[in-house]
Write a protein that binds this DNA or RNA. Sequence first.
DNA 1: TAGTCAAATCGTACATTTGCGATAAACTAA
DNA 2: TTAGTTTATCGCAAATGTACGATTTGACTA
Lengths: 101, 101
Amino acid sequence: MKRTVENINYSKETIAIARFAKALGHPTRITILNYLDNQSCCFTGDLVGVLPLAQSTISQHLKELKDAGLIQGELKPPKIKYCIHQENWNKAKELFVNFLK
Amino acid sequence: MKRTVENINYSKETIAIARFAKALGHPTRITILNYLDNQSCCFTGDLVGVLPLAQSTISQHLKELKDAGLIQGELKPPKIKYCIHQENWNKAKELFVNFLK
DNA sequence: TAGTCAAATCGTACATTTGCGATAAACTAA
DNA sequence: TTAGTTTATCGCAAATGTACGATTTGACTA
């Protein structure tokens, strides 16, 4: 993407929506978020039991969601409890609702 | 993606949300949709004037949005008028609002 | 200190996305 | 028919995404 058009000046909102949308743009991640919402929280290992994917792959998807700010991890040694990042979740909701008005 | 895990059974809704989200997952496409919404409709050429991207690149983004069902094209020779696909747009809105509840 | 467990990260392979310029296709108008 | 206009598609290159198994890391516990 860093080629001739190095930096288009998108608005902050545009970038924010695209960032959230990108994170939501894979069925596995939608599934993870649904699961997370139902359980309110969960461990990586729970997902490994639920999804037919390698542990490393699931970890990668969790990273993607965490980087986008949609979830957060809390240390519960030796596990990590993942939950929805409510603040950013609400922000995403607001952005989408406003955008899709 | 077609490797060992050939087909995970995602629900229809999950696939639908991910599909829409993926299409929304690029700032250029968000910009196009915003523009489209403001003008209610537009031609490919209009966007070429607005965005610092090659015509072929913009055409590609439009295709992506069309394939996702978010916009539709109407032949107005020698141009093509693109508009929001209102029905699918509403569907997307419903899916996102429900998902982000 | 050594061992254990859960999760992250590394290295790799392949697929998909994003971008461009060049070209083709569809239509009008002369 | 020919030329012009507009948009789509092709072919390519680079970047990014998705998946795996193997390994490392971090936080305990014995």
